[in-house]
Write a protein that binds this DNA or RNA. Structure first.
Lengths: 191, 191
DNA sequence: TCATTTAATTGACCGTGGTCATTATTAATT
DNA sequence: AATTAATAATGACCACGGTCAATTAAATGA
């Protein structure tokens, strides 16, 4: 099972992704249209779907790329010593996730990967995040009676809960942080 | 601000909902097409959108109706004394939520209502569920150091987390229950 | 009962995601 | 270089959600 991918293929895919990025940077993820992507890339519509299963697949790549660069920064940072610091460090990721309703919905839909062998870019990022967070759980004062994996999954759950509620009300930035803290303290702190 | 709704209006809406229910009962929620709904109801397409903001709005009503009847049963039941019993009692709701990927996605999308004054049927159901669950939190052995509202919201978060992960792997029914238990015990039990 | 205002219905039309048989390119073989 | 096999690209076409100016029916007032 070799990989006889011609470089024409790579070039075309790169053009599609570049076009997608350009559109997103101009009008946001919500504004992306497949027809606009192919016209900018100078290819036919059918070509798009030869490279991406559907529109969401490109969306996943674009959003996954953003998440990856946020995670790159996150994994450089020292482990936070307090819940407050933990929330602060996660803030950039949270802010990106709620930057557009469309983005949040898509992340939500793909964060639980569809199939085991078909984990997409977003699923990968969620996994990365879980790994990073799991590395934080040795701090003093955190509970030891629950497996780190479970704790990390719980953090994910509370992140999504927080962001979902964020879209309900008059959302100030401070609300996200304080709400998340109010979940994470009872979840993580030994008491 | 009276309510001069002619009964023709109610009749039309009822026909649309009945048609929707029939389609769903035959082919599932995923199989519902607006054109099929209007043709069965014997009205024009535009009429549909005079009664429902969009297709999702009908979907919300249909799914909300199912959830409501499940919640009716749930609120009759005595408060569970253990986490295991709690999970067992929630099981019917969980099973419905994962009965179709489409259903889960839609519930997820609308569980955090979009606007304060625009809480849809699904948002209402989530609220009902929260209320019911909050009533369970006086059982012996449950922690008292966290506000019941936060605890109940946390339960919601873990339910969604559990169901999202359910779609990843080889999902047996038992997996849902045991995974949810593994979250709820550290979340709810005094320790 | 007719005229007028208000509300409900209609269906042609559009935007956009996605398909697929056909055609064009590239790689492999002689 | 010519032939063939495999891969990529094309664009007309379809499915389906959603719109809106025009039409019809119901309520109201004289």
């Amino acid at each position: 099972m070799e990989k006889p991918i011609q470089k024409r293929t790579l070039a075309t895919r790169a053009k599609l992704i570049a076009a997608g990025e350009a559109i997103v940077s101009e009008g946001g993820f919500d504004a992306l249209r497949v027809e606009e992507v192919v016209s900018r890339a100078g290819v036919a519509k059918g070509t798009f779907f030869a490279h991406f299963r559907d529109k969401d697949a490109l969306m996943e790549r674009l959003i996954g790329a953003r998440l990856d660069s946020i995670l790159d920064a996150l994994s450089e940072v020292p482990a936070p010593a307090t819940i407050d610091a933990m929330v602060d460090e996660m803030l950039p990721m949270l802010q990106f996730m709620v930057s557009e309703r469309y983005v949040f919905d898509l992340i939500l839909r793909y964060s639980g990967a569809a199939l085991i062998d078909d984990i997409g870019p977003i699923g990968m990022c969620i996994g990365r995040h879980e790994t990073v967070v799991m590395g934080w759980l040795n701090a003093d004062g955190l509970r030891r009676d629950v497996a780190p994996k479970i704790l990390a999954e719980g953090i994910q759950a509370f992140v999504f809960q927080t962001l979902a509620l964020h879209f309900c009300a008059l959302h100030s930035d401070i609300a996200i942080q304080s709400r998340l803290r109010s979940y994470l303290k009872p979840w993580l702190l030994a008491h």
